[in-house]
Design a protein around this nucleic acid. Structure first.
Length: 813
RNA sequence: GCGCGGAUGGCGGAAUCGGUAGACGCGCGGGACUUAGGAUCCCGUGGGGUGACCCGUCCGAGUUCGAGUCUCGGUCCGCGCACCA
């Protein structure tokens, strides 16, 4: 065969030009008109809820990074549909929140106006073009009253269940955003949105008691089919740690005693002082009355949320504590290095065996005692295990055993017990901002905080002109007198509305419940619909939401399940975190100025090409480097498919080798798509398309191979495959449910095998054999191989290892 | 600091249970067709020698007939958490 000959081209015009813009516009229109992607939610055959994290509609629009979840999730959904599932794939908008509000302020427009414009742009100009089969008849928008009415309903239900509390606490205050931030919105002491150093304020706020579910949520992680990285992050965030609580008596202050938490009860005899968190809500109770003023002045002097720990900051309070076993008198300190919000907010300091306590003791000339052998505590803290010394009766015990015995002794004295603590904190949901759902509470002078009756919901967000935050600790809503003043729902006396709005994460914590029920306005989620569709079968999104959104959503689902309102305690059966797309080795972000708009790529190459290209960049769950150079490879692939499938008109249907090749392809693509290994699935399709193209050129290409290629490619490139399906004479859609080709495992298995021959581990030849040729036969064939005979030169091999279909290794002396 | 990933040609990445390293694509080289091509198609492409040979998967040890893959030690990169007692 002349290898340089170009394939025979058909007469010009025969195939038509591939015009991606025309093809995609046409099928977008046809699909919309026919309602191909409207799901019958009431009579699903095999319901499959395929969800992708919804975006917040920023004014900048989508960037190429968004294609990853939206196209990647859609490919999976389209595949499930071809496999026979009734796939529900909705999309919506996380439209409330500080981010949208800040942008509105920047451009001096009302957030509602900005939001409506951004949503329209996202939906009509961007999401609609990427070829995902979103069912827009069930769109969700968290900023619409028809949605946030039910967010408020959820708040009321949580409140009535005793899971929401109004209490004072040290909170993170962003002096630029002029609002409270949750702990997880603070990054290294700075606001995650504007990077301003965060301050601490003491305010009365609304908290959701998520900590009650810490253990349950930790345990249930084992039952979830989620990305391991995500589960690990949740485990770390929940942060279970085991240890003991120990009671110390106090003298010289209002409090009689204090409980501390430690993970090292074996070091109890090394405790030489106590430290109370500087942000402890009841710090004053630890201070002798005459020193109260001095301590408060000190406490207000420094920002407790410092970026870098500073162990020189601390103050001796003047009261003292009594060691529960030795009776020794220990000094009591306050310092910011101890967190008022974790454990009991107070610690016993064991400077010999804890690095932080050691640094503090050194800075303040406090005694350091060795109670565990293994280091030199004068030179450095030793935090490993060892043998107890200077510990009275417990000397000589190991750390483990000593710890257990000390807890037992404390227990007898009613001075301590083993204990479990979690890093997870309660969820602070108050925001002193405008652009969110008003918290549905009315404060009555007589009845205290009263939930707005469910029939009075929604509490509409009043339309105010000046929505900018005040910085007073009060939301802009507080200035709307006619809105704030209402009668108490309980007693009818004059009362005032809560003026804070709730955290955006409350909106997104339950949106998966709303999608199937958007056509119900009397309930947040219809029972039957919810039982049919929940939990979500597949959820795809970024790992940046691993611990907040995903944890809150799990919490809400669990609570609703305990209330008997939803069929499962977990919202998402399967979750996969997609990888991050980087650009020139750097994360894509606005601040780097390397955010790419997908519109121009779709315009230029078409959505099919862009989808394929993005999925081909690297392993889906690891991400990859975006360099648009390689996109031409995808254009070639689609052109090749365009040509090859239209020219494959007949062929020998019974051709055994080609039939085996076809079955093998189906198996490979199916197995890869099931595990989101899109890059390798595409590689197999390209290989197949290349072969088919060559066969088309010499007129032997089989129609069934073309059909198979179109079916397998359909989830990746929905437009062009649909067009070609029609052009190759088919009625109906290539995406029709349940039409994925089946493969025969026997046919998919290779029939011939190339077996390598190695001598002492070095490759010296190969054998072409029937697949499954026995080890004995392989060994015999290998020993008869001329090259092997030559190398052995009459010597007897010491050992011959043969592995069926793989290798023969001959070992000589 | 702690936790979790990762390191393979010029580049992105393949490689099942430990069994032919480099699938597929980009780029590059050569060719075909063209007035031209940054269009399209075909062939080649880890490095070195250029005869069937040697060297090659971050570095160093180890286990094994055989290691990209397993074990131990180290380096570098990314992500997450970061005073959590």
């Amino acid at each position: 065969m002349d290898t340089n000959a170009a394939p025979v081209e058909p007469a010009p015009g025969h195939l038509g030009e591939y015009d991606h813009a025309a093809v995609e516009a046409r099928w977008r229109r046809v699909w919309a008109e026919r309602g191909d992607y409207r799901t019958d939610l009431d009579l699903p055959d095999r319901p499959f809820y395929n969800l992708m994290m919804f975006p917040y509609p920023s004014a900048e629009g989508l960037h190429v990074g968004h294609i990853i979840p939206f196209a990647g999730g859609d490919i999976y959904g389209r595949w499930r549909r071809l496999m026979g599932d009734t796939v529900f794939e909705p999309m919506g908008f996380d439209a409330f929140g500080i981010h949208s509000e800040n942008y509105a302020m920047k451009i001096g427009e009302h957030p509602a106006v900005v939001m409506r414009r951004a949503v329209a742009n996202f939906r009509e100009n961007q999401l609609a073009r990427i070829g995902s089969m979103f069912d827009w008849s069930h769109q969700v928008n968290t900023a619409e009253p028809s949605y946030y009415r039910w967010t408020q309903w959820l708040f009321v239900r949580l409140f009535n269940a005793g899971l929401i509390e109004w209490r004072e606490g040290a909170v993170n205050w962003c002096p630029s955003c002029l609002t409270v931030l949750a702990d997880e919105q603070v990054e290294q002491g700075r606001c995650e949105r504007c990077h301003t150093p965060v301050q601490t304020r003491y305010l009365r706020q609304w908290w959701i008691k998520i900590t009650r579910y810490a253990q349950e949520m930790l345990d249930a992680l084992d039952t979830l089919d989620w990305s391991e990285s995500t589960k690990t992050m949740q485990r770390n965030w929940i942060g279970r740690s085991e240890g003991a609580t120990i009671l110390f008596d106090l003298e010289g202050c209002r409090r009689k005693d204090v409980t501390v938490f430690t993970t090292r009860p074996d070091t109890l005899f090394g405790a030489t002082f106590l430290v109370i968190g500087a942000d402890h809500p009841e710090l004053e109770d630890f201070v002798p009355p005459e020193r109260m003023g001095e301590v408060n002045a000190w406490r207000n002097k420094f920002p407790p949320t410092a970026a870098e720990p500073d162990f020189s900051i601390g103050m001796e309070l003047g009261s003292s504590a009594i060691h529960p076993l030795t009776g020794a008198r220990l000094s009591v300190w306050a310092a910011p290095y101890v967190l008022g919000g974790y454990g009991t907010g107070a610690i016993m300091a064991v400077p010999g065996h804890d690095a932080r306590d050691w640094a503090f003791a050194r800075a303040h000339s406090l005694p350091i005692v060795e109670v565990i052998t293994g280091g030199n505590v004068d030179a450095a803290p030793y935090s490993g295990a060892g043998t107890l010394v200077n510990s009275g009766d417990f000397d000589g015990a190991t750390s483990d055993d000593g710890g257990r015995r000390i807890i037992a002794r404390l227990s007898e004295l009613r001075r301590g017990q083993s204990s479990v603590q979690y890093k997870l904190r309660d969820w602070l949901i108050s925001r002193q901002r405008y652009w969110g759902p008003p918290i549905p509470i009315i404060h009555c002078p007589k009845d205290g905080p009263v939930a707005v009756p469910e029939e009075d919901l929604p509490v509409l967000l009043p339309d105010v002109e000046d929505f900018r935050p005040r910085g007073t600790g009060l939301s802009p809503l507080a200035t709307v007198e006619e809105w704030v003043n209402v009668p108490c729902p309980k007693c009818g006396e004059p009362a005032r509305r809560e003026t804070d709005v709730s955290d955006t994460f409350l909106d997104s914590a339950w949106y998966h419940l709303r999608y199937p029920s958007t056509d119900f306005d009397d309930v947040p989620f219809d029972k039957e619909r919810t039982d049919t569709w929940l939990p979500v079968n597949m959820y795809i999104g970024g790992n940046e939401h691993a611990v907040r959104h995903l944890l809150y959503a799990r919490f809400v689902m669990r609570v609703l399940h305990d209330m008997g309102l939803v069929p499962s305690p977990e919202p998402y059966t399967r979750f996969r975190a997609h990888g991050m797309i980087i650009m020139d080795g750097a994360k894509m972000s606005k601040s780097r100025g390397n955010v790419l708009n997908p519109d121009e790529y779709i315009e230029r190459y078409g959505a099919d090409t862009v989808r394929l290209f993005m999925m081909y960049l690297g392993p889906y769950t690891l991400g990859g480097d975006f360099r648009d150079k390689g996109i031409t490879g995808m254009t070639r692939f689609i052109h090749r498919t365009w040509r090859a499938t239209q020219l494959a008109t007949g062929g020998d249907v019974t051709d055994d080798a080609r039939e085996r090749r076809r079955h093998r392809l189906i198996k490979q693509v199916e197995e890869d798509v099931a595990e989101l290994r899109y890059n390798t699935a595409i590689a197999y399709l390209m290989e197949f398309a290349r072969d088919l193209d060559h066969e088309s050129a010499d007129g032997t290409a089989r129609r069934i191979d073309a059909e198979t290629l179109l079916k397998l490619l359909a989830p990746f490139a929905p437009f062009v495959t649909e067009e070609l399906w029609e052009r190759t004479g088919h009625d109906g859609s290539v995406h029709e449910r349940g039409t994925w080709p089946a493969y025969d495992a026997e046919l998919a298995a290779p029939q011939r095998a190339t077996v390598a021959i190695t001598v002492n581990g070095k490759r010296r030849g190969e054998l072409e054999v029937d697949a499954g040729t026995s080890e004995a036969n392989l060994a015999a064939l290998a020993l008869g191989h001329p090259r092997v005979v030559e190398l052995l030169d009459g010597r007897e091999p010491r050992k011959v290892i043969a592995v069926v279909d793989r290798i023969v290794n001959i070992v000589t002396g």
